[in-house]
């Protein structure tokens, strides 16, 4: 292995229903189709060197998923983005790649996520009232079915920020590709920033929390998109985990 490359990709539209396992299989095939000189692990059944940072749940769209690959010969990250993106179905889109530099690994650079939650059919006022009630409650216990069975935990503590956007039409917010086909239904839009905790608090859990504190019941399933993930700064911004590597490349080139 001569190089490690970190990649940002998106899961959009109908293909947000791709599970992580499905994506992993598709990505391995894309690597072969694109002719990427992928490195393999040693051993009896060699595996391609691909490792994933925390993946968005099945059914959730994302603009910021990350993975890292090892390659046997040096490749140009820009060409790699183009080749891999062409080899994947539209809707699984490769957005960015950088050569990994020294310093902490991908996983250690990710401790928070920003999500956008569209609630078609929910009036903005109702959403605002529920959010206010949620934020005013110090602890919001919710339940989720996990592999270990039903678990109860707090959905409030991990929430760094939760605001109600100006509202609008489903799918047209904030210059980000719609997570689904536009239906034209008026809907409330939530912006959510959550810190990574154990167990992880996911948008679903926050929505459960809104149901617990304010009986907010969306009439149709919400559409959730991860917008960013990375390092949470003191000022509440989230820093792209590829930024540090990119800076190093820039320094090296200068």
């Amino acid at each position: 292995m001569v190089q490690r490359i970190r990649i940002r990709y998106a899961k959009r539209g109908p293909l947000r229903f791709t599970s992580h396992r499905d994506f992993a299989r598709a990505f391995e095939r894309a690597v072969r189709r694109a002719g990427v000189p992928i490195a393999y692990s040693q051993g009896f059944t060699p595996h391609p060197k691909i490792s994933y940072a925390s993946a968005a749940p099945t059914g959730t769209a994302s603009e910021a998923e990350y993975l890292e690959i090892g390659v046997q010969t040096e490749v140009d990250p820009g060409d790699l983005v183009k080749a891999l993106d062409a080899a994947l179905s539209p809707g699984l889109d490769v957005l960015d790649a950088v050569v990994a530099g020294p310093g902490p690994g991908l996983a250690d650079r990710i401790d928070a996520s920003a999500w956008r939650i569209e609630l078609p059919g929910v009036p903005t006022e109702a959403a605002a009232a529920a959010v206010a009630a949620f934020l005013a409650t110090p602890e919001v216990p919710v339940e989720r079915l996990t592999k270990q069975g039903r678990r109860s935990f707090d959905a409030r503590g991990a929430v760094v920020r939760l605001t109600v956007g100006a509202g609008g039409t489903a799918g047209e917010a904030a210059g980000v590709p719609a997570p689904s086909e536009v239906t034209g239904v008026p809907c409330a839009i939530l912006d959510l920033v959550v810190r990574q905790t154990n167990p992880a608090v996911r948008p679903d859990d926050v929505l459960s929390g809104l149901r617990v504190v304010a009986d907010l019941e969306p009439p149709v399933p919400p559409r959730v998109t991860r917008l960013v993930q990375g390092t949470l700064t003191a000022s509440g911004e989230i820093v792209d985990p590829l930024a540090a590597d990119r800076d190093q490349v820039a320094i090296a080139e200068r």
Partner: peptide
């Protein structure tokens, strides 16, 4: 031989 088509910088 499989040509990767990926340019080596």
């Amino acid at each position: 031989p499989v040509n990767s088509g990926l340019r080596v910088p």
